[in-house]
Simulated scan of single mutants.
Amino acid sequence: MANHKSSLKRIRQEEKRRLHNRYYGKTMRNAVRKLRSTTDKAAATAMYPSITKLLDKLAKTNVIHKNKANNLKSKLAIYINKLA
C-alpha cells in the first residue's frame, strides 16, 4: 500500500477519473450502437449531431483518441448516407 499522502490522493483521483471515463465511454458506445441499429434515415440524421458532439467532447478530454472519434463520425456519416 502507498506510504505518502500524495500517493493516496493520487489513487483516489485515478479511481474517480476511471469511473468517469468508463461511464462516458459506455454512453458513447451505446449511442453509436443505437444509431447503427436505426433503419430510418430521418431519425438517424436527427441523432447524428448529438453523437458527433459527444464524440468531440470525449476526444477533447482524452477519454478516446481524436482519430477514433473522427473515424466513428466518418463511418456513421457513411452509414446514414447509405440508408434509403
Rank of each mutant, 00 (worst) to 15 (best):
H20F: 15
T38R: 01
R10H: 05
L83I: 08
D40V: 00
A42S: 11
A44G: 01
R10D: 07
K60L: 14
H65L: 13
A84W: 09
L54M: 13
M28Q: 02
I78F: 13
Q13G: 07
K9A: 12
A2Y: 09
S6I: 06
A43G: 05
M28V: 02
S50R: 10
Y79M: 12
R36E: 13
D56C: 03
A77V: 07
I78R: 13
I64E: 01
H4P: 00
N62A: 11
R10V: 01
K9M: 11
L19F: 05
T52K: 09
Q13V: 14
K16P: 01
L54T: 04
N81D: 14
A31L: 01
S7L: 06
R33V: 02
S6G: 01
A69P: 03
L83H: 11
M28W: 01
K57T: 15
Q13L: 11
L58V: 04
R33K: 14
H20C: 02
I80V: 11
Q13R: 09
A77F: 12
N21A: 04
N21T: 04
K34V: 05
K57Q: 15
N81P: 08
K34I: 03
S50H: 10
K5S: 12
K68E: 15
A59D: 03
R22W: 09
R22I: 09
L72K: 07
A77H: 13
H4V: 05
T45Q: 12
A44F: 03
A31G: 02
A69T: 00
L8T: 02
Y79C: 06
D40F: 02
K68G: 09
K16R: 10
T52V: 13
K82Y: 12
R29N: 06
T39Q: 11
L76N: 07
T61Y: 14
I64C: 02
N81F: 10
D40P: 00
R22Q: 14
K34L: 08
M47K: 06
L35A: 00
K5M: 13
I78W: 11
Y24S: 00
K53L: 14
R22Y: 10
H4M: 08
A2S: 11
Y79S: 08
N3R: 09
V63D: 07
E14Y: 11
K66G: 05
S6C: 01
G25R: 06
S37M: 08
L55P: 00
M1D: 10
K16V: 06
M1Y: 09
K57S: 15
Y23A: 08
N62T: 13
L55W: 03
D40S: 04
